[in-house]
Design a protein around this nucleic acid. Structure first.
Lengths: 214, 214
DNA sequence: ATATTTTTGTTATTTATTTCACAATCACTA
DNA sequence: TAGTGATTGTGAAATAAATAACAAAAATAT
């Protein structure tokens, strides 16, 4: 597959495209043009055509894109045709919310188990997911697990990530407000609500200023 | 203030810088060089110096940056010296988790009230935050509210955002997996855990492929 | 007091991303 | 089946962001 040259920015948009196509297919829309699709996802139509062009000719001139075909292609490209198993580390408020949510709708990902430091949680089941003791993490064999969702306090995130890595997990979705320092064989994505909220406030104030000065 | 020309990419990094500086000040570190700071936040030191340079000369040659001074500067730049009031819309699993979390630690933001469509929740208090009926949202006066955190199901996100806008709210942190279509006087940031998880899986698989083909 | 080292701020360069512009091609109409 | 309109795919141009390189200045050491 000619994927090495797909720009990072393009790759980051694929999940949004995929989800949007799922919605279109679900309501029975069989074809869509790049401009109509662009309106939907709020991305310029040229960017969309260029994004798709990195994977070859996915559309038809004068017609547009076949939603089902495009969705199937993206499903494969995003490895959504196979189930990804993930674990959740830290069953606090946010962790529990994610266990309840559990991604599975339209999303071939399953939280197969969770870890927590609180001994009173060990062995209990939250929303169908069994909770294991934190001190078994490093020695468990988790080589069949794609990623760990980190919802532990910031002070324990680094340590938890290292244990998960030791157990064979290389992907991390880090919800803790701290930067993880891991070797090159680990890949981390960071979801930081505090950062998002502060950035929102910054841009709100600045777009206001801009408007006032115009 | 000369802020109109601060690049978007720089602005997006400021909250991370701010949080990291809070940590440094808290442990008593009074000075830091761009390279040491860069190691901490995993960003090239040149990028950091350039980012700060958009705001003028914040450091001293041969010395580095005064952490307290830099933190104070960023606090003002990010409007964190004044309290931002936000509302939460949708008190489900994730909404409840955010109410419990409530951002306030090191973060001058407070969820002052919540809205939910379930009548049995109306008037109750979750983690200190009172819950109001959804149908009062559009007619309430929320002009003193900076932003709304949207944690409603995707199917209701657009509608909820429109009601919040009608009540005077212009900033949105959207956790629902759907694109919002709002007028230009609204500003939306999107936190999408499904997208993050899919992007994580994509990059994991692709960095593996890259390694294997090398 | 002088020399050396450190480290910034900034200009120039490179890389990445987006946007433009339009020929090529296909769909649709009559 | 010819003609018109729609829409892709893509090279070229423009914009944005990251990185390199280094002079200037200040700190520290001798």
């Amino acid at each position: 597959m000619a994927n090495q040259n797909v720009p990072q920015a393009t790759a980051e948009r694929l999940p949004l495209y995929y989800r949007t196509l799922q919605g279109l297919v679900a309501v029975g829309k069989t074809r869509i043009s790049s401009s109509e699709f662009g309106d939907l996802v709020q991305i310029d139509s040229t960017t969309i055509r260029k994004d798709f062009s990195y994977f070859g000719a996915l559309g038809r001139k004068g017609y547009g894109y076949d939603t089902q075909h495009l969705m199937d292609f993206l499903r494969k490209t995003l490895y959504q045709d196979e189930l990804s198993k993930v674990v959740l580390i830290g069953v606090g408020h946010l962790g529990t919310a994610l266990l309840n949510h559990n991604f599975q709708k339209n999303n071939n990902t399953k939280i197969v188990k969770a870890y927590d430091i609180d001994p009173s949680l060990t062995g209990t089941v939250v929303s169908g997911t069994k909770i294991y003791a934190m001190d078994t993490l490093a020695t468990d064999d988790n080589s069949d697990i794609t990623a760990a969702i980190l919802t532990v306090p910031a002070a324990h995130a680094q340590e938890a990530a290292e244990m998960a890595l030791a157990s064979g997990i290389h992907g991390f979705l880090n919800f803790s407000p701290t930067t993880l320092s891991l070797p090159a064989n680990a890949y981390v994505r960071h979801v930081d609500m505090t950062v998002e909220l502060q950035a929102l406030i910054y841009f709100l104030n600045h777009s206001m200023e801009e408007r006032n000065s115009k």
